[in-house]
Amino acid sequence: MNTRIRLAAALLIAAATSATMAQDAANLHLRGLAATCANCHGTDGRTTDGSAIPSLVGMPKSYMIMQIKAFKDGSRPATVMHQLSKGFTDQQIDSIATYFAATKR
């Protein structure tokens, strides 16, 4: 009986650890995806004061999705965003917009 309890406890710990590791990996992937914006939009999407490039932090998700898709389909002119946005899937665009909308200014 004692062995069964230990085995059950070990399985629960392993399951919890696995779920935590999966969540950590998903968060790391999302942060890496959002970091692709850092070259122009600053670390964590925060540009410096007075920059012509907008900060992304706190930007409404729906607005960001609309703008990235406009760059992607060419309806909004850009210097490099039209090229960069074509490399993102709709799911990646949604993830990036979710990340920056949830990040506090």
Rank of each mutant, 00 (worst) to 15 (best):
N2Y: 13
N2S: 06
N2G: 03
T3P: 00
R4Y: 15
I5H: 13
I5L: 08
R6V: 09
R6N: 10
L7K: 12
L7G: 02
A8V: 03
A8Y: 12
A9D: 01
A10Y: 11
L12M: 08
L12A: 11
I13S: 13
A14F: 06
A15S: 06
A16T: 06
T17K: 10
T17L: 14
T17D: 03
S18K: 08
S18W: 10
A19N: 02
A19H: 05
A19K: 09
T20W: 14
A22G: 04
A22Y: 11
Q23P: 06
A25H: 05
A26P: 00
A26M: 04
N27I: 11
L28H: 09
L28R: 07
H29I: 14
H29A: 11
H29V: 14
R31T: 15
G32C: 06
G32K: 05
L33Q: 08
A35Q: 12
T36L: 09
T36Y: 11
A38Y: 14
A38W: 10
A38R: 04
N39T: 10
N39H: 12
C40E: 01
G42D: 13
G45W: 00
R46H: 10
R46C: 03
T47F: 14
G50M: 09
G50H: 08
I53G: 07
I53F: 12
P54F: 15
P54L: 15
L56K: 04
V57R: 01
V57Y: 01
G58A: 02
G58R: 12
M59I: 09
P60R: 12
K61M: 04
K61Q: 11
S62M: 11
Y63K: 15
M64Y: 04
I65V: 14
Q67C: 05
I68R: 00
A70W: 15
A70I: 01
F71C: 03
K72L: 01
D73I: 06
D73M: 15
G74H: 10
S75G: 07
A78M: 02
A78D: 04
T79E: 06
T79N: 06
H82A: 08
H82D: 04
Q83W: 11
Q83S: 02
Q83P: 00
L84M: 07
F88H: 01
F88N: 00
T89D: 07
Q91W: 02
Q92K: 10
Q92T: 13
Q92P: 00
D94K: 13
S95K: 10
S95V: 01
S95L: 09
I96F: 02
F100Q: 07
A101K: 12
A101H: 05
A101E: 03
A102G: 14
K104A: 11
